[in-house]
């Protein structure tokens, strides 16, 4: 008995990091399955390939950094980052695209800063933005929902495509820009939104398929809230700010600006609000700070979506907000007990 230098508390500690990450993975399942349902199994290949690559990258980097490998792999942070990254990619992406993105996610997004806990930027968004800037053609080639194109790539075809062995002639008919991108293009060409929305790509509120997937992300997000894996401040302020600013412009001119409902259920707003912006490492940590941080992402994403050069703005908005986190945290320190 020579542990006197150890001090309290002597309770078995709370849920480990791996358990928190596992909740995130569970919450990602409904949306991921819906994605595969509407667009075919390509997304699953992306995810599996990205996760395997991420774990391999992380193991190699940990080895090079002379850090223990097993405990760091078992915290599942690499799995979650890779999964989110894969969901951002077009559903059929060549293997090298995934590899380059995961490489940047794990190296430039995470380990150059010292690994989990030290990275100032959301790793998955770092990898995604690198690809978006470097390979715009590959990154904007989105396949149509099965419902619209009437045909889907099976598992074998998807695998063959990913690993570069597929005959891709005639596939152009299966691809198109995302609904969000189409609205932006239409507005740019002075086509009224009501007309643009009559295209078969659009569903009840958002894009066909996409709107249901977004609702599944919402479902997963509610699960995260119920299990107290995340707090409510960031998702709420992000969604509210998107609604507020889109309602404002929709009210001004509903033919040039899409409705709040369309914005909520399009692109990465839902998954961003519950899964990406809530990454604890890179988000603000104070209650007030989280509200500001979420609102900032929502507003920036809307601005980039509507007036910027990219189809969606969540990734850029998250990275820009990441930069402001130290400042936000400093100025939103809560009043301590007894402080006047």
């Amino acid at each position: 008995m020579s542990d006197a230098q150890l001090s309290s508390p002597y309770l078995s500690p709370g849920k480990p990091v791996g358990a928190l990450m596992l909740q995130v993975v569970i919450a990602l399942l409904p949306g991921t399955l819906a994605y595969a349902w509407f667009f075919g199994p390509g997304v699953l290949i992306n995810i599996v390939f990205a996760v395997v690559l991420a774990l391999a990258f992380e193991a190699v980097i940990l080895k090079l950094r002379q850090r223990p490998i097993r405990p760091h792999l078992s915290d599942l942070s690499a799995v979650v980052a890779a999964w989110l990254f894969a969901l951002c990619l077009p559903m059929h992406s060549p293997w090298w695209l995934v590899a380059v993105g995961i490489g940047f996610t794990m190296i430039a997004g995470k380990h150059v800063y010292g690994g989990l806990g030290f990275n100032p930027f959301n790793p998955a968004m770092v990898g995604y933005v690198v690809l978006l800037i470097s390979f715009p053609r590959e990154m904007t080639t989105w396949f149509l929902p099965i419902e619209v194109s009437g045909q889907s790539l099976g598992l074998a075809d998807s695998l063959a495509f990913t690993f570069g062995a597929a005959d891709t002639t005639g596939w152009d008919a299966l691809t198109a820009a995302t609904p969000l991108d189409q609205i932006r293009t239409a507005v740019g060409q002075d086509i009224p939104i009501s007309e643009a929305r009559s295209a078969p790509l659009f569903g009840h509120v958002g894009g066909k398929g996409w709107e249901w997937i977004a609702l599944c992300w919402l479902l997963g997000g509610i699960w995260l809230l119920v299990t107290r894996t995340i707090r409510w401040q960031i998702p709420l302020s992000l969604l509210l700010s998107v609604v507020a600013i889109s309602a404002l412009f929709y009210g001004i001119d509903s033919e040039r600006f899409a409705s709040p409902a369309f914005h909520l259920l399009s692109g990465a707003v839902m998954i961003g609000a519950f899964f990406i912006a809530t990454d604890p490492v890179t988000a603000s940590t104070t209650d007030t700070g989280r509200l500001l941080y979420g609102a900032m992402i929502g507003l920036l994403a809307y601005v980039i979506r509507t007036w910027g050069g990219y189809p969606d703005g969540i990734a850029f908005a998250v990275l820009l907000a990441n930069m402001c986190v130290p400042l936000i945290d400093y100025y939103t320190r809560p009043r301590a007990y007894g402080e006047s």
């Binding site: 002597y10 030290f118 809560p334 301590a336 007990y337």
Partner: peptide, 27 residues
């Protein structure tokens, strides 16, 4: 039940659970 020693633990992921439970309202 002996706690981890300083340095022998995972890194802080800034989840903020400590902020939620701190009765002195600290960070």
């Amino acid at each position: 039940t002996i706690p981890a020693r300083p340095g022998h633990h995972d890194e802080c992921i800034r989840c903020g659970k400590c902020v939620e439970v701190c009765p002195a309202q600290l960070l």
